Simulated assay, not measured.
Amino acid sequence: MTINLVNYGLNANFEQAGKTAKGLALARVTEQHHNLYRIVTTQGERQATVAGKFAHENTDPTSFPAVGDWALVTLSADIAVIHQVLPRQSVLAREAVGDRKAGQVIAANVDTIFICMSLNADFNVRRMERYLTMAWDSQAMPVIVLTKADLCDDLPAKLAALSEVSMGVDVIVCSAKTGAGYDKVVAQVPAGRTVAFVGSSGVGKSTLINRLMGQTVLATKTIRADDDKGRHATTFRQLLVLPTGGIVIDTPGMRELQLYTGDLERTFADIATLATQCKFRNCTHTSEPGCAVQAAIQSGTLTTERFESYQKLQREMAYDGLNARQREQAKIDRMFGSKNEMKQVVRQAKAKNNRK
């Protein structure tokens, strides 16, 4: 049976790239399991691995295939070989888990990102800022999906808190128990469009997808009642085609989200606008006269918590692309001005202790 790749989100750009590649077939990555992948081509689904040459020439982990990627492959009876990943139209990436400053692609070629957060103890405005910073940078459109509305007794207060950070973003409130809000979720996943689900463990991503699929295809687990921590239901990334024609990518829950790339200008558009009104172009928004940001904090139109979150993410983003030594130097520069000044502070501290 021949598969129509349009049903998997194929557009004119990727179709043209597939036609010009001689001897190679066009495929979309539907699952990722460490170094093994599952792909779909016009001939159906099969496992795949990357070519040796591809692995040798690409040292950056973000260059390797990810769920949602379109790739050029050779087909065989047992396993396909991926030779090239086509240029991505959007890419959602985070910092890889561990000490090494490396990126990890969560999903590629998505049109919309559902940032899922439950309306219980998981609700966290500062974490939402992180997700939005990552999402805006991806070139896809973020949508905030607030789940478990039936467990929330202070919805107006939570929506008011979220309004400070959700500028320009649709917010959907839904409940698996009552079915409220699911019509709005469905409307965001039209035929041919790809939507990636991200969020912490246990917030209801798999439950949402099962409802969209019209059947249970993903395991679901709830947030534990004793500590409000989520348990992983999804353990790998996968792409699914809905009966309505939309395409969804399910991703494992992220308890900690370290930014690899991000768009602070979009997430903190209010602060970016205020910064243009400061007296000095290089204003640090700390103690300079005529600082519009500090004036907004003093007047109450900008909260201290939001500004501190902006500063924290700004420092984190400044480390992007630096190795361990460079990151440590950047930290020293931020704290002490330079390594020599740090040594001077240390000497002064030792001298003070010796006098005691």
Rank of each mutant, 00 (worst) to 15 (best):
L302Q: 01
L264M: 14
T267W: 04
M317T: 09
T301E: 15
F307L: 15
P243S: 12
G262A: 12
T273G: 14
D250Q: 08
Q238L: 02
H232S: 15
T286N: 10
N282F: 12
G253M: 13
L274S: 04
D263V: 03
F307I: 00
H285Y: 03
L274K: 02
R325E: 15
D250V: 02
T244H: 10
A318E: 01
L322D: 00
D270T: 11
L313F: 12
D263H: 05
E316C: 03
M317N: 01
R281M: 11
A272M: 10
E316N: 04
K312P: 00
G300L: 11
G246T: 07
K312G: 01
A233Q: 06
D263Q: 07
M254S: 06
T303I: 10
Q311L: 08
F280G: 02
E328A: 12
Q277V: 08
G321Y: 02
F268E: 09
T235Y: 14
T303F: 03
E328I: 11
V241Q: 12
H232M: 13
E328C: 11
R255G: 14
G245E: 09
C278G: 02
F268C: 04
T304A: 11
G290K: 07
I297D: 01
L313D: 00
H285M: 09
A269Y: 03
C278S: 07
R315N: 06
L242M: 04
C283N: 12
T267F: 08
T276K: 15
D270G: 06
R281S: 15
